[in-house]
Design a protein around this nucleic acid. Sequence first.
DNA 1: TTTTTGATAGTTTTGTTAAAAAAGTCAGGA
DNA 2: TCCTGACTTTTTTAACAAAACTATCAAAAA
Lengths: 205, 205
Amino acid sequence: MAAANDQQDIKREKILEASHQRFLHYGYSKTTMNEIAGDLSMSKALLYYYFPDKSQLYIAVMRKLANDYLKTLESRIGTFANLNEAFTFQVNTHHEFIVNNYNFFDFFRLNEQNLPETIWQIVGEVHATELRLLSDAIKTEVEKGAIKPINNPDEVVDVLMDALHGIRVGAISQKKTNFPRKEHLEEIHTKKLLLVDIFIKGLMY
Amino acid sequence: MAAANDQQDIKREKILEASHQRFLHYGYSKTTMNEIAGDLSMSKALLYYYFPDKSQLYIAVMRKLANDYLKTLESRIGTFANLNEAFTFQVNTHHEFIVNNYNFFDFFRLNEQNLPETIWQIVGEVHATELRLLSDAIKTEVEKGAIKPINNPDEVVDVLMDALHGIRVGAISQKKTNFPRKEHLEEIHTKKLLLVDIFIKGLMY
DNA sequence: TTTTTGATAGTTTTGTTAAAAAAGTCAGGA
DNA sequence: TCCTGACTTTTTTAACAAAACTATCAAAAA
C-alpha cells in the first residue's frame, strides 16, 4: 500500500515537473492539458485522475515552488551576523526566485483580479515569511544594541518590501515591456542593493 | 489680429476645460467628441477646427495639467530649509496630483504599451523635474555640510522615486483593485512619509 | 482494486459578419 | 476667419457559427 502510494507520488511529481516546464515557457493560458499529457506520453484523462482540474495543477506547481523558496528563507532565519547580511540575502534570494520563474507568473499578470483564493494564500505565506525574516533581523540587531529601537519593525519592513517591488516595476515600465531583459535584471538588482544600503543606514540612526 | 488670437485662445481654453472634465469623470474611451461638443453647445466639427484629433486633444489637456504641476515644483526648487522639507513637499505634491487626476490617467492603464511619443515626452519632463528638485535639495545640503557627500545624487533620487511608486502600487495591488479608495490613499501617504523619513536618515550618515 | 484510455459532452476561445456608434472630413454659409 | 450640417471612413459592438480546449465517464488493462 505504501508502495502504491509511492508510485502515485512519483507520477504526481513527474506531472508537476512537466507542467512546470510548460507553464514556465508558455504561461498558463498558452499551455494545454493535451500538451502536458503529450510530454509525458500519457493520456489527458490521466492528468485528471491525478489532479482535479487545470488550475489546481497550476496551484500545485506553485505550491512546490513556494515551498522551496520558503525552505530557503526559513533555513536562514536568525543566522545573520548583521542587518546588511540579512537584507542582502533577502534581496538576492527574492530576485533570483522571481527571475527564474518570470514567465510562470504570467497567470498573475493576466488574471490580476479574481485569482483563486489558494493563490492569495500562498502569496500571503511567502510575504509573511519574507517579512518575518527581515523583521527578526531587525529585532535581533535592536536587542544586540547595534541599532536604535524601532517602534514597529513589521511596518518598516512592509514599506521596504513595497519599495523594492517598486524598483522592479519602475525599471520595467520605463522600458515599455512587461518582460524584463537580461540587462535590466542587473540594473534592477543594483538599484535594489542601493536602496537597501541607504535604508539600513536610515535604520541605524 | 492679437484680439483674434485671444479669442481663439479663450475658446481653446474652454474646450480644454470641458474635455478635462469629461476625461476625468469618464476616461478617454468613454468620452466622445460629440459629448464634449454638446457640453460647449458647439458642433463637433468645430472641435476639429481647433484640434486635429481626439488624442491630440487629450494630450493638450495633459500638457496643461503637467505644466501646472511643473510650475508648482519649479517655483519651489531651491527654497527648502532642509532635506525633510524638500522630500515631504515632493511626496505631498505628487500624491495630490495623482489623486486629483486619477481617472484621467486611465488612458495610460488601458493602453499601457504603444502610447503616442508625446505622452512619454511629458512623462519624461515631469520625471526630470521631480528628480531635479530632489537632487538639488541633496546637493544643497551637501554643500551646506548638513549631510555627508553623495557619489551620484541623481541615481539616489531615481531609486527613491521608484520606491515611492512601489508604495502606491503595492498598497493597491494588495486590495485587488485598480482604483484606490479614500481609505487607501491615507495609508499610502503614511507609508510614503515613513519611507522618506528612513531614507533621509540613511542619507545623513 | 487501481490505473489508464478513447470517446464524447460541455465550455471557452476564436473568427466572421452585419449593424451601430463614433471619429474624422468637407463644401459652403455667416 | 469661424462655424455648421451632412457626409464618409473607421472603430466598436452584437450575434452567431466553427474550432479548440477543458472536463467527464464507461470500460479496458494492469
